[in-house]
Design a protein around this nucleic acid. Structure first.
Lengths: 201, 201, 201, 201
DNA sequence: GATGAATGAGAATTCATTCAT
DNA sequence: AATGAATGAATTCTCATTCAT
């Protein structure tokens, strides 16, 4: 943790400043892209000097990782909170999707940027894989609790994960005019049920 | 088209050289990332001088776009060729997925890189949307030919498209150790059939 | 002296603190080099805040100068104390050399660093020249007391000074494996006597 | 040699440019000090862009090392050429000193700067030690040829080396007004003879 | 048409110094 | 008096692009 260069802010004021840098910096990186966001941009947007950034972070990359963790938590926490046993599974699924959409909005454009960095940056790669793992496995254990057990549940859970994720993207960015997001949501719910019911036979 | 700077090569030799730059450059960008690939890298890998690149392309970005078009075609052509009426739909689906996996291998890491650029670069964004549109719509018309007709077929086709895409990624990169790619393929086929059969009732 | 910015500490506590900064700072600068020693390094090593340094010193350079004066005195005082009339000149010379070696150890690497700064920094330059002057002249007056008088005694004294200095360096740092420091000391003593005896004829 | 970043100029024009950078850069570093000389300064003084510097050198330090080698040769070559058997040893000595003075003028202020860097920079350190070794050993073999043989000749040679060096400095910079350089030269010659004659007994 | 040396704007990072607390 | 967080000018180094040959 300690590297002799960066320091952990102790005072409330400084902690806020550090968080401000993470939030503003990460947001900027997600909006403009990692490469196109300069440390000067981040400093300006966060209302601090360039120097202070290097008191709290080793480099630009470090800010990105910090942002990743912060927003990763913001995404997972409410989602996991939703995965409680429920009488109406369909209803629960609909709710989970809504939660995920909200969570994804936090990341915004970041998702693509993060996935691109995944390819070249081992630290980002590790984080995003971990995120997918945790989510998939949490989903599996939830399904187990719901009484759904089968060999390939991990695979099914992952397919569901990807399907919900692309649904989120479509809903958030509405990239394709000819697609109706609400219809998609309904189809996804149907499909998820189909994926899981297959095994209930 | 003409901008007074770049020129369209007329001679066979020059056309080959231009294509070499596109292929080598695009491949490099996909492997190392757009930003981390320098024009010097591209020139060296393509066996040309840095200067000549600017005879054929306006800038680095232009090479990427050209690569996108070239490989877009390489991806779509064989895929579309496969979508011919068939007695065994399940068999056809399996074949399509295999073709797509092959097609995705061509892009390799590019996919993520391209999607990241999508966020900031309108030209890339337009291209990738166009690609998704063409694919989705072609899939829809194929399904229509197969006798599958319904209101939300576009949405269903898009969901299928995304599901197949993430399957491709998992198979190519095998990011998650705990997932069995072949099982995933089977589930995807099943699920696609489920998505489409719902409407056959 | 007063510049409206720095102040002369009155309290015992403050005087100690100022001296601590000079000693620690100067030592650090001599070990790591002037440029590579940051004010943060000095503050940390001296156990004070970076801010307080600027209460006692105008800038980093000022600390170096202060260190120079402090250690200059530490070097000269014992050396001069040794230069007392003696029956055995050779014995006295040997003792002087030992004293000088001790004195040089205090400076350590500083010597080179100081001499380098001499070239660009007038204040350092003036100080080091003054040091050499005082030493040379003190040596001359000592020699005079010993009955050695001649026109070019200043020049001879300076040559002796340089010879002893490079002997000190060799003994302290032992840069050249193939040189025997003790042999060198003997040769230097012999040579010094030779330099001076010439004039005794 | 090859590091994939810097390249060795092939064309006459480029070789001249590279040498210009070394000479101008090294001179500047010697005049203003290593740290105070920026790459921008060097580029400006050499009449080139900052970028081209990094085509030929890895960094600023690399330029310094290159300068060291270049001027090291300029110093040693004429000196070694002078060390030929001679009837009049005193005359030869006087000539050697003159040659060394000329050689040292090339380095100018560099000497002190180099010696300071010696303390912190292993590469500079290695170079300067090598230079001293080569010179000392060459002097010893010359003395052997002249018929001077004794156990501690290396030590004597090194003392002579240092004595001549400080003489050079005094003559070039004339730091101490009260010293007469010509008198010093005479004393040095006398002393050198004394150092060597001791062994002729 | 082709080359690759040269350019220089731009980015990350450092650190002496200041200043709010 | 003392602190140490904050500043921002200054510096090194990179690389897309140009241009003399």
């Amino acid at each position: 943790m300690e590297n002799g260069k960066t320091r952990e802010p102790q005072q409330k004021r400084s902690i806020e400043k550090k968080n401000k840098i993470i939030e503003t910096g990460f947001t900027l990186m997600c909006e403009k892209g990692y490469q196109k966001t300069t440390t000067a941009d981040i400093a300006k947007a966060a209302g601090v000097s360039t120097g202070i950034i290097y008191s709290y972070f080793q480099d630009k990359h470090d800010i990105f990782i910090a942002g990743l963790r912060l927003f990763g938590d913001k995404l997972l926490t409410p989602m996991f909170a939703t995965l409680t046993p429920s009488v109406d599974f369909r209803e629960a699924l609909s709710h989970i999707i809504d939660i995920l959409i909200e969570g994804h909005k936090v990341f915004g454009n970041a998702h693509k940027e993060i996935e691109a960095l995944t390819m070249t940056d081992p630290e980002v790669s590790a984080f995003i894989l971990e995120l997918e793992d945790v989510t998939t496995k949490r989903l599996v254990s939830f399904l187990n609790e719901e009484g759904i057990v089968c060999d390939d549940l991990l695979e099914r859970a992952h397919i569901i994960y990807n399907m919900v994720e692309s649904l989120c993207h479509e809903i958030i960015f509405h990239n394709h005019e000819y697609l109706d997001a609400h219809r998609m949501k309904d189809i996804v719910i149907e499909t998820v049920l189909a994926i899981l019911q297959v095994k209930e036979k």
